[in-house]
Amino acid sequence: MYRYTFTIRGGDTPLKSGINWGHNGRNGLRQPTRTGNEAYLSISKQVHKERPIFLPQRGEKILVLTDDEEIFVCVVAQEYRKAIQTCGNNRILGAYIRERIDIPSGAYVETKDLSRYGRDSIRLSKIHEGLYFLNFDSQLTLANWEEYLWSIEDRETNILQEDSEKQILIESIFVRVHQLNIDIYGGFLALWDKTIEDYFVDSDLIIIKDIDTDNVLYDEGGSPLIVAVFNYCHSIDLETSIDDLQSLQCEIITKDLLFTNL
């Protein structure tokens, strides 16, 4: 997977590149022949270094499917394979993004436009050679919440509970599902090794708490979050399906809003 953010260092959108490739900053179009929709997705050198086969070579075409069921033929472009743009017409991708965030076609994209939409990045996943999936969904559900964790940079590790034999370490983020009245913590179980006098990771762990009482209702190791939630519902005789659960709206709570007794 690759996360591409539309903003650059400092939190602003780029003046003359990326999503605003067709613009001369806020002064209008770069050239009279441009429409303002010209755009590309930047691919950093680090991506190629860490995942050299994530993208094909420069000039090769790829098929990109989107979360809202659009399909684009794109091409790997520019020197060092540092961009992806729609094939034959680099205005198609820019027009698509502007339509999704509800601004006029060809308009200069600002940070406030992305903030109003609810997301400033996309996630590009490789499904197969030449086939990719682009996620730009702004509605958070149990089906896509993991996509949003990549957009949160201030993620620390805290201890959720601890005893003489084990501790559960989590990132300072949890998912709240109001319709089920639960908070879901994802982390890992760490066991104490007397030989090295330190903890070692034993397994992944999901902990489910009641929103009102903060009591632990259920825990499960080694399962995806959605499966653990399904098994929790089954344990309390709440009839539901994986599909129903995936459609539930939720919110990610960061450390600033964590309960003080954690």
Rank of each mutant, 00 (worst) to 15 (best):
E165R: 00
N158A: 11
S44L: 11
L189H: 00
I92H: 10
E251L: 01
N135T: 09
G130N: 05
N20W: 08
T157V: 07
S151A: 04
W150P: 02
L63W: 07
Y218H: 12
T141K: 06
D202K: 09
A95F: 02
I62L: 14
P224M: 00
L257A: 09
I173W: 01
L124Q: 04
S223D: 02
R91N: 10
P32W: 01
H23A: 09
S105I: 10
K166I: 15
R9Y: 01
D193I: 07
L205E: 13
P224F: 00
S223C: 09
Q46V: 11
F54V: 05
I19K: 01
I53K: 14
C233K: 01
L114A: 08
E147T: 10
L160G: 11
I62Y: 03
E38S: 08
V201W: 10
N135Q: 14
W192E: 09
L114T: 01
I127M: 12
I236C: 08
T33G: 06
I127G: 00
T213N: 08
I19G: 00
I208F: 06
N20E: 09
G186P: 03
L63A: 10
W21T: 05
Y96I: 07
A143L: 12
I170M: 05
F174L: 11
L225I: 12
G222L: 05
A228V: 12
H128W: 08
R26G: 00
A107C: 08
F6S: 03
F72N: 04
R119K: 14
I127L: 14
N135H: 12
Y96C: 08
V75C: 12
V227T: 10
G88I: 06
W150A: 05
I253K: 07
E153F: 13
Q179K: 09
T35S: 15
S105K: 03
R51N: 11
I159M: 01
I127Y: 05
Q161A: 02
T157K: 11
V175F: 03
L248D: 12
F230E: 09
K209W: 02
S247F: 11
A77R: 08
E147C: 08
K209M: 06
Q31A: 10
V109F: 06
E165T: 06
Q246Y: 02
K45V: 08
V76M: 13
E110T: 05
L124S: 05
T141M: 07
G88Y: 11
L238C: 04
N27P: 00
I159P: 09
I170A: 03
Y218M: 10
K126G: 12
Q139L: 14
K209L: 07
S247I: 13
I97E: 03
P104K: 01
G10Q: 04
D68G: 06
G88D: 12
N90E: 06
E79R: 14
S42F: 14
L225T: 13
Y218F: 15
L140E: 09
G106A: 04
S203C: 08
D154M: 14
I43W: 04
S42G: 06
L258Y: 12
L149Y: 07
Y2I: 13
A228E: 02
V64D: 06
L63Q: 14
S247N: 15
Y80K: 15
Q57S: 11
Y218E: 06
Q139E: 15
L225V: 14
T66P: 02
E146A: 02
S223Q: 13
T157L: 03
F54M: 10
Q85T: 13
G130Q: 04
L189E: 13
R30L: 13
